[in-house]
Design a protein around this nucleic acid. Sequence first.
DNA 1: TTAAAATATTGACTTATTTTAATACTATGA
DNA 2: TCATAGTATTAAAATAAGTCAATATTTTAA
Lengths: 102, 102
Amino acid sequence: MRTCAGLPAPEALARIAETLRLLAHPQRLHLIGLLNRVAAAPVHALGAALDAPQAVTSQHLNLMRRAGLVAAERRGKEVWYSLADRRALKVLKCVCNQGGTR
Amino acid sequence: MRTCAGLPAPEALARIAETLRLLAHPQRLHLIGLLNRVAAAPVHALGAALDAPQAVTSQHLNLMRRAGLVAAERRGKEVWYSLADRRALKVLKCVCNQGGTR
DNA sequence: TTAAAATATTGACTTATTTTAATACTATGA
DNA sequence: TCATAGTATTAAAATAAGTCAATATTTTAA
């Protein structure tokens, strides 16, 4: 298990920031949490859980898919999404515990 | 150790997203990493390490301070900053390992 | 009290992100 | 082939975030 020894190089910091930026949205975080519970689900089911318009749900999922955070697989008319990067869930888990002073 | 059981409530998701948004910037991530190494440092030293203008460094630090991610303490003419929320470092650490398929 | 160092704040500007609505695409079954 | 369900894409408008330069504030020391 590689832990972040030393400071990440500038390009690495940019990539990490980009990943965090994608996670830094309530609905996208919600999607990550949902996908963790159900393993995989079609867009319309996820959109219903979020109570968000179809286009919005699709856009969020596509953003995360392009970054490799989630994966998409067509099953007939539906496209089922699933988690593809365990870091997404790890981030959600470690940031949703209360902070506290160090 | 409280782990994120169940999906966070909407307000919680918003708070978590806000925290992640603050971390989702290369220079702010760099500051978190630096503060982890040195424990505390004045603004001008951090700005020099980042090679960023004084105002920019101060602004980044202030953003994070208002969110409770870092703490500030005046020592004479200087203001020394330090980490105040261990989640910041945890996020940096777990997101800077390579992603991988689940 | 004046000057200088260190930090913070402000406002204008530029850029990026989010939202919305409309429309296009793809697969299925009649 | 046609209609329909499920997704994706696009463009425009609204909102938010980042950058920069100038200036204000705070503290110390002369």
